[in-house]
Design a protein around this nucleic acid. Structure first.
Lengths: 170, 170
DNA sequence: AAAATAAAGTTGCAATCGCAAGTTATTTGC
DNA sequence: GCAAATAACTTGCGATTGCAACTTTATTTT
């Protein structure tokens, strides 16, 4: 009996039954489990999502970085290129090249700020606004699929937990 | 009064008070809010986390892809290179190069499978096991910081929600 | 058993990324 | 009010990535 129980809790997937999973997600712990590691799950979710969204965006001829920038500018505009980079959590020099490409494609325009000559302001062009609108339209169905089965409560819980995670990362 | 209420619910951050946030996270909706978009949050969290972990891993001389592969092999070994790629959600050809680098660094060894001549099996060397152990040790403190404030219930809820999200992504 | 199809991995090549070392503009300390 | 420090951006360059086309081995069909 004792033997059996011991086997039960150490075997395969049984850690999932534990009351407190936090130790299993600790990379330093002996009984570490990849599936209990929030950042493995986080990276998997983000990567999978990016694969899915990438396929959809290809239809309208844009890539993920472009879409991210458009989404950010859709929220507030114009924005310093450094702010865009921060929002997207993308290296400034990389963002430089992304904006360069987008400018060449006619999606955004850039200008030197009058208030502060160091900053480069980024604004969507009309074509950019149009593309953003299209991007939103084509990604909406995917959104519905992924959110399937999430109650209003689940949804807001997810947002809250992610937000707390992000805040702990300072 | 009517006027004031209208202003209130359309202003700034007040969407957060809404009972059901799901519509705000829908890229197709008119009152879309970036912060209600789970994948913006997801990508932000993952990117921020990667920045933090990258800095820690640099101390022991490895990068994120290396660490991901070591973690995966730590879970089950030997593994076909294609399986490693799938687990890590990394392109096979990219994984090819990652394993190549790791092999050159003496962290893993590869061999052709006897059961199936097509598959390339990847195994950690002793040096790889040692590095994995070190990596776990140096990342553990970061883990504690990030998990701070998460109850056992919060933690398991996060894992469950992420898992459901991942499953919806098929 | 041979031919056709599929699965698993390999590699050339062009594009993207990000570090490091700049430049230019603003702010701070004296 | 000027020199030093800081902030914001820019760019060269080597490393990494991923598509596409290919090779090799296994499985399925005829």
């Amino acid at each position: 009996m004792q033997q059996k129980y011991f086997q039960m809790v150490t075997n395969s997937e049984n850690w999932k039954l534990s009351k407190d999973l936090r130790p299993y997600g600790n990379p330093g712990s002996d009984n570490f489990q990849l599936e209990a590691y929030p950042f493995y799950m986080l990276n998997r979710a983000a990567s999978r999502y990016n694969l899915a969204i990438e396929a959809v965006l290809r239809e309208i001829g844009i890539d993920i970085p472009t879409w991210r920038v458009l989404m950010i500018l859709g929220e507030s505009q114009p924005l310093a290129i450094g702010q865009v980079a921060k929002s997207a959590v993308i290296n400034l020099s990389t963002m430089m090249r992304i904006v360069e490409r987008m400018e060449k494609a006619g999606l955004v325009a850039t200008s030197q700020s009058e208030a502060d000559g160091r900053v480069k302001q980024v604004t969507m062009t009309d074509a950019g606004e149009t593309t953003l609108h299209e991007a939103r339209k084509v990604t909406a169905p995917l959104y519905d699929t992924i959110i399937r089965g999430f109650s209003a409560r689940d949804f807001s819980t997810l947002l809250t937990l992610l937000d707390r995670l992000i805040h702990n990362l300072d």
